[in-house]
């Protein structure tokens, strides 16, 4: 059974339609990357899956049809998203950010234990746990956004361009964390990226999105082998 199945998804903003019916799938424990240029509709896809904008088509999570569900229900169903840009609550402390991430869960001790676990994974967050999130560096904020998303104990993590505005070294570190999470915890990941090179290495499968349509899909190896795709997206 696949973790996420999207069939004929279309969405947009008011009269402007961005997605023209896309299909995609993320298997259990899979690491899937969606590549696309600016304005291809990557963020819209993510927002549509999380229920932030109205959408047509079918979105299934672990077999449940969630197309008509509200955002909080979708989080409860096990889908967490790290949105593009600042995905944190800048006025809240790091700890409060983490606790807000666990909003859908019950039971204080479990939540505290989880928080300490993620502070071990991201030690810099642990050091700054009482600081306001807005005072963290860009890379730390992105880590906080990921840790916050993980606090809801998701089965599927949606990551919207976490590398945006970060130095290459920090991006690498971030991707390393995502890869470990996928490998060690069995977390399914759908990662949206412009930074193709890095993402292709860790992806088990890749989708190419162009002006609201999926134009190609396959394993990293398959897509790298295709000359035209390699020239257009990978630049080598």
């Amino acid at each position: 059974m696949s973790m996420l199945r999207v069939v004929g998804l279309s969405a947009g903003y008011g009269p402007v339609s961005v997605l023209q019916g896309i299909d995609l799938e993320v298997g259990e424990g899979e690491f899937v990357v969606m590549l696309g240029a600016n304005g291809a509709g990557k963020t819209t896809t993510m927002r549509a899956i999380s229920g932030l904008i109205s959408r047509q088509g079918l979105v299934e999570v672990a077999g449940d049809d969630i197309t008509k569900w509200s955002p909080d229900h979708i989080v409860r169903a096990g889908v967490a998203q790290v949105p593009q840009g600042r995905g944190t609550f800048p006025e809240l402390s790091v700890e409060d950010n983490m606790l807000a991430g666990a909003y859908v869960r019950h039971g204080g001790h479990d939540v505290r234990d989880d928080m300490h676990k993620w502070f071990e994974v991201f030690p810099r967050l642990g050091e700054r746990r009482h600081q306001r999130a807005g005072s963290l560096s860009g890379g730390e904020q992105q880590m906080l956004a990921i840790a916050r998303a993980l606090m809801s104990r998701p089965k599927l993590l949606l990551c919207d361009e976490p590398s945006l505005g970060l130095a290459p070294l920090i991006t690498q570190e971030l991707f390393g964390v995502l890869e470990r999470l996928n490998r060690d915890e069995g977390l399914s990941v759908l990662l949206v990226e412009q930074n193709a090179n890095l993402a292709m290495h860790i992806a088990s499968r890749v989708y190419l999105l162009e002006t609201g349509n999926i134009v190609a899909s396959g394993t990293s190896a398959e897509l790298s082998a295709d000359d035209s795709i390699r020239k257009a997206y990978l630049g080598f």
Partner: peptide, 12 residues
């Protein structure tokens, strides 16, 4: 602080 992130955290 951030309405959209609040929605993504499952807050109604």
């Amino acid at each position: 602080s951030n309405t959209e992130s609040a929605k993504l955290a499952g807050i109604r």
